[in-house]
């Protein structure tokens, strides 16, 4: 801030390069007030409401069988959807950044598509495909396979929602790094997998981890898409966010906020890890406004 031309040259003039102190104070105050009202108060409120019934009630709420089965199902969904999305992200990044081909920008746009589709529609398309009145509905029910109102439907809807998360983080970085290191590895006799494992992955590990982190957060927290395909069967198809909804609608507010606080804690940990990763990679991962 102090490093202006005038000061460097020790000119006896004052250049209007900063706002008056009063303006700065007001702007900082406005920004902070907005963030306190819209971000900090809600975050604090989750934990206050969660412990309103006391610590005993809190732990009872997150260890009752239906809560535990929701936690288990949510972890299962993350465990399946995150590795698949990461594999997709790496494959997409390899094809898009290491080769030149027609239609590449269209492909990039299509990968981003799930970002601008309403979660409700993301769930609905699978109902149209696999629901009882859907295209494959009759065939599936004749063979006793349940996808909608069952775990496979929840996984499909989650896969749709998180599809861009890893690709989005890895592609810009690999674009920036170019192809020379991989070409050198191949010329030295490495095969494709060796090149990927020993050259590319070490170069992109922080961006990859960052994408995985965001993907994991979204997979665990997704509500709209999952809500459409789940059927809200307690103990079977309720994920943690759905369990929060069920408890809330049953007026079990303290229990609802107790489960919500676990999700909030996960969100805070995600934010902390995100900052650690940004610090480790030494730069802001800026393309990640999702």
């Amino acid at each position: 801030m102090a490093d202006t031309v005038a000061e460097r040259a020790e000119l006896p003039i004052h250049l209007p390069l900063e706002e008056p102190r009063a303006v700065r104070v007001v702007l900082i105050a406005v920004a902070l007030l907005f963030l306190v009202i819209f971000l900090i108060l809600p975050l604090v409120a989750v934990f206050v409401e969660a412990f309103r019934g006391g610590i005993g009630a809190y732990f009872a709420a997150i260890t009752e069988p239906e809560a535990l089965s929701a936690i288990y199902l949510t972890l299962l969904i993350a465990l399946i959807s995150v590795p698949l999305t990461a594999a997709f992200g790496i494959a997409a990044a390899w094809s898009v950044t290491k080769f030149e081909f027609k239609g590449k920008s269209l492909l990039l746009t299509l990968i981003d598509l799930p970002f601008s589709v309403s979660p409700v529609i993301a769930g609905m398309v699978f109902v149209l495909l696999f629901g009882l009145q859907g295209i494959f509905g009759t065939w599936l029910s004749a063979h006793g396979i349940k996808i909608i109102f069952a775990v496979p439907g929840i996984i499909l809807a989650t896969l749709f929602i998180v599809l861009p998360f890893v690709a989005r983080e890895v592609i810009p970085l690999m674009q920036q790094q170019g192809t020379t290191q991989e070409e050198a590895a191949v010329l030295l006799g490495a095969n494709g997998w060796q090149t990927l494992w020993h050259v590319t992955l070490p170069n992109i590990k922080w961006a990859l981890l960052y994408g995985v982190l965001l993907c994991n957060g979204r997979a665990i927290g997704e509500f709209g898409a999952v809500s459409v395909v789940s059927g809200h069967i307690a103990g079977l198809t309720n994920t943690m966010p759905l369990h929060v909804e069920v408890l809330y609608n049953d007026y079990a507010f303290a229990a609802s906020f107790a489960v919500a606080s676990v999700l909030s804690l996960m969100a805070v940990v995600t934010l902390v890890l995100k900052n650690v990763l940004e610090w480790r990679s030494g730069e802001r991962t800026s393309g990640s406004s999702y």
């Binding site: 989750v46 665990i220 929060v244 999700l263 969100a267 934010l271 995100k274």
Partner: peptide, 17 residues
């Protein structure tokens, strides 16, 4: 670092809060 909270916090949690 708090700015990104809405991306990380599940929407149902935001809703009830």
């Amino acid at each position: 670092s708090l700015i990104d909270l809405p991306f990380a916090l599940p929407t149902a949690v935001a809703g009830i809060t």
